[in-house]
Computed example of a mutant assay.
Amino acid sequence: MHKKIQLFSIILALITLTGCFFSGSEANRWNVAPEGTTSFSLSRDGRFAIYHSAQQGIVLWDLRQNKKLADFGSQDPHHNTVLTSKISDNNRYAITATAQNFAIWDLAWGQSDGLWSISDGIIRDVDIANNGQKVLLGLSNGKALYIDLGTGRRLEFLAHQEKVNSVALSANGNFALSGGNDYSAYFWDTRSGQIIYQFEHTSRISRVALQRDGKLALTADGGNDAYIWDLSSGEKQAELAVRLRQQNLSSARFSDNGQQLATGTPSRRVELWDTATGSNLGRWEAAPKQDTRPPAAVVYDVAITPDGQVVSGTSAGIAQAWTTD
Rank of each mutant, 00 (worst) to 15 (best):
G258W: 02
L149M: 15
S140G: 08
V302N: 11
A103D: 07
T190P: 00
T305S: 01
M1F: 00
Q259E: 10
R44W: 01
I196S: 11
S178A: 15
L244Y: 03
D71M: 14
W322H: 02
I87H: 01
S250W: 07
R47S: 06
V208A: 05
A287N: 10
E156S: 11
T98W: 09
Q211E: 13
Q260T: 08
L155C: 10
H52R: 01
D189G: 00
A252S: 15
S267G: 08
D62T: 04
W229F: 11
S166E: 08
A217P: 08
G214P: 12
F157V: 13
N131K: 14
L231T: 01
W284I: 04
G234N: 03
L231W: 14
H201M: 02
G193Q: 04
D225Q: 14
A209D: 15
N165W: 00
T16R: 02
V242E: 13
W116E: 14
R293C: 03
S74N: 15
S184P: 03
D291A: 15
G138I: 05
C20S: 05
D71T: 15
T323Q: 04
V82P: 02
N248D: 07
E162H: 10
R253S: 05
I147C: 02
R283Q: 11
R243M: 09
N141T: 06
F175R: 14
R124Y: 05
R191V: 15
A217N: 13
F72K: 14
G150W: 02
G152P: 01
S203I: 12
K143C: 04
S41V: 10
F102M: 12
W188Q: 12
L272R: 04
R29Q: 13
F22G: 05
P294M: 14
E239W: 06
G193V: 05
Q65N: 00
V270Y: 01
G152N: 07
G317Y: 03
A168Y: 05
A94Y: 06
I205E: 11
G308I: 00
L155R: 03
S74H: 14
T37L: 12
